[in-house]
């Protein structure tokens, strides 16, 4: 049976009727599958949550142990049966390459397969497994950076920009705005891989999640809370990471000779960077750029492509031109702006 008969967009989000389950619902529901831990996909208050073990750990860290009545950790590729016994819906999670614990959702029902990519990227990321190509009838792709102007440079290139700035401005404190989950840890690992071994200083809002990464075996090196530094002048020449909202806020006033840096895919657009008074934009994204979105559609090679949150128009146009039946799924409430880019 065609997925459009059994998948629909309801007010809490994407809904699979025969399994009675929502994917990344925005409001509390009875059964939810959560693709990854970003706040616009993972909400608290559901009765039962199915997700990867890492995602459940992230949700516990963010929302506390009471974030859902029941949680079920699913291993990558493990098939879980929903719906009626004689008319089952088979659901499994597969790596999406977006952040720690991020998954695609594969749903098979009455001989048709639908894959929900969640947020994903194709570049290697030491904190998660590579995106897996899953053959399917309908592929639901995100479209965060779905315009041909978006072409992300290699992360090594952007980290080199940062380190060269630290060398040129040794008396300035480099404050990097980076989303607390995923981007922050990726920037830290990028620095470590480039041989930067000094302590990296963190805004209080980033500490719990960095600790979680460390406890799950990802070595981020020496991290120190900014609040533990009594004499803030000592931060001259150091690297500090904070959530983007703290970049030009009161919190940053105590830091010496600030150089504001921001790590985000949006930094490719000059005006975006300048709006935020960013002096050093780093184009580091946890999403696909335009060529990677098109490459993924070709490799998955589904019958149909459905496009969700982001710049749907361009991807719908291009995917149609590539010969795929394509439509835009208007899902509201997903945050495609700064924070998770």
């Amino acid at each position: 049976m065609h997925p459009q008969e059994w998948m629909s967009v309801e007010s809490p989000g994407l809904y699979c009727k025969p399994a009675d389950i929502y994917i990344d619902p925005m409001q509390p529901v009875a059964q939810a599958i959560v693709t990854h831990g970003h706040a616009d996909h993972a909400r608290s208050g559901h009765d039962t949550v199915y997700a990867s073990d890492d995602t459940i750990a992230i949700m516990h860290t963010r929302y506390g142990e009471e974030m859902a009545k029941n949680t079920h950790g699913l291993a990558m590729g493990e098939i879980k049966q929903f719906g009626k016994k004689d008319d089952p819906v088979l659901i499994s999670l597969h790596p999406a390459g977006h952040i720690l614990g991020s998954c695609q959702v594969r749903i098979e029902y009455r001989h048709q397969v639908l894959v929900i990519s969640g947020d994903y990227k194709r570049r290697p990321d030491p904190t998660c497994d590579l995106f897996e190509i899953l053959p399917c009838d309908v592929f639901i792709t995100e479209a965060t950076f779905a315009l041909p102007v978006f072409r992300h440079p290699p992360i090594e290139h952007e980290i080199a920009k940062l380190l060269s700035s630290v060398a040129v401005f040794p008396d300035r404190c480099h404050l990097i705005g980076a989303y607390a989950l995923g981007k922050c840890q990726r920037v830290i690992l990028g620095l470590r891989n480039a041989g930067y071994s000094k302590p990296i200083y963190l805004h209080g809002a980033l500490i719990k999640l960095c600790n979680l990464y460390q406890s799950r075996g990802i070595d981020l090196g020496e991290l120190l809370p900014v609040s533990d530094v009594d004499d803030k002048k000592l931060l001259a020449g150091e690297i500090v990471i904070a959530p983007p909202s703290a970049l030009a806020d009161r919190w940053s006033r105590s830091l010496p000779k600030l150089r504001t840096v921001m790590a985000s895919g949006w930094m490719q657009i000059r005006a975006r960077a300048r709006q935020r008074l960013v002096e050093l934009p780093l184009i580091i994204s946890d999403h696909c750029d335009w060529p990677e979105l098109l490459q993924t559609i070709e490799e998955v090679n589904p019958q149909e492509v459905w496009v969700t949150h982001g710049r749907e128009d361009a991807l719908v146009h291009q995917s149609t031109k590539m010969g795929y039946t394509t439509k835009a799924l208007r899902l509201i409430g997903y945050d495609d702006e700064d924070e998770t880019g």
Partner: peptide
């Protein structure tokens, strides 16, 4: 060099011609 529909959508988003072209020009 670029599909006119994609050019228009890009230009709308970037808001400025020089930068749109700078990014869209085939590498």
């Amino acid at each position: 060099r670029v599909d006119p529909v994609l050019f228009d959508l890009s230009y709308d988003y970037v808001g400025e011609m020089s930068e749109t072209v700078a990014h869209l020009w085939p590498d």
